[in-house]
């Protein structure tokens, strides 16, 4: 990046030379990745490529052997997972993790209170806090969940649970969002709902989505990163990725052939 090139492109998330070995095996092998404001990046790769390990390193569930992670200019390599969330690095889960007996309204309100540093208060009911209520229902309405705001999470449809997962992470007001297979397990007809929800994410948010569903990824992402055997083998546009011979070899295989024939 040259000097004096107008406003500097500020990386929200900067991963530098991250390395993790399990035994002798390099599961994450010198991975560097930058995400800027508004980025919509998809991280794909065959099973065992190290996607989950990478997510766990970035969110702090695992400690790297080398390299560093920076969020908005701050080195967070040593920070605990919850400290990273408080700083604005939020993840969603591939397997739905919700509070089964709590309502969508309670989920979102609790996340908002947590973001405001008020989740430790032993008095006061969020239903009596007009600002929290208004914000909660704004988020629920955005994801079309306001009709079921009062039902326990274990009684709503699976697709709605996935939407609630997105509502929950939105309420944490992240700067960088890691979406781990947001449409996993959702029947094809409902994938549209998830897609539409993701389109409504705030424009200045940096999103890294990990997924297998190619069509989904290609519609969502403006940039695709391919991980294979722990290393990044491709970083470019969705249009280029299916033409890249190394990616075809490592991952897309027959799928890319099908696609070009169609």
């Amino acid at each position: 990046m040259g000097p004096c090139a107008g406003a500097p492109v500020m990386s929200l998330l900067e991963v530098r030379n991250l390395r993790k070995n399990f035994g002798g095996l390099a599961v994450t092998d010198d991975v560097s990745l930058n995400l800027a404001k508004g980025d919509r990046v998809a991280l794909i790769g065959p099973n065992g490529a190290g996607k989950t390990t990478f997510v766990n390193l970035v969110t702090g569930q695992l400690k790297p052997h080398a390299g560093s992670v920076h969020l908005d200019g701050e080195d967070i390599t040593a920070a605990s997972p919850s400290r990273r969330v408080q700083a604005g690095l939020v993840r969603s889960f591939q397997v739905t993790r919700l509070f089964s007996e709590m309502t969508p309204e309670e989920h979102v309100a609790l996340a908002l209170l947590q973001k405001q540093g008020r989740s430790g208060r032993v008095f006061g009911d969020y239903r009596g806090m007009p600002a929290v209520m208004a914000e909660t229902h704004e988020i629920l309405a955005l994801l079309n969940l306001d009709g079921i705001a009062q039902q326990p999470a274990n009684s709503i449809a699976y697709g709605q649970q996935r939407l609630l997962e997105i509502a929950l992470v939105m309420a944490l007001r992240p700067k960088v969002l890691l979406l781990d297979e947001p449409a996993a397990g959702v029947p094809g007809s409902d994938t549209m709902l998830i897609e539409r929800a993701l389109e409504r994410l705030p424009g200045d948010l940096a999103v890294l989505m990990i997924d297998h569903d190619m069509d989904f990824v290609f519609r969502f992402a403006r940039r695709v990163v391919v991980l294979a055997a722990g290393a990044i083998i491709f970083d470019g546009t969705p249009a280029e990725v299916s033409r890249d011979p190394r990616v075809r070899e490592a991952y897309l295989g027959s799928y890319a052939d099908d696609r070009s024939q169609a």
């Binding site: 919700l98 089964s100 009911d125």
Partner: peptide, 27 residues
């Protein structure tokens, strides 16, 4: 009052899924 409070909700959340509570940045 305590069980209705944000803290009470957080405790119920911990009972149902502590991993999710941690991922919300809460102790």
């Amino acid at each position: 009052i305590v069980v209705r409070s944000p803290f009470g909700m957080l405790c119920r959340g911990i009972k149902q899924d502590p991993v999710r509570v941690r991922a919300m940045g809460a102790p």
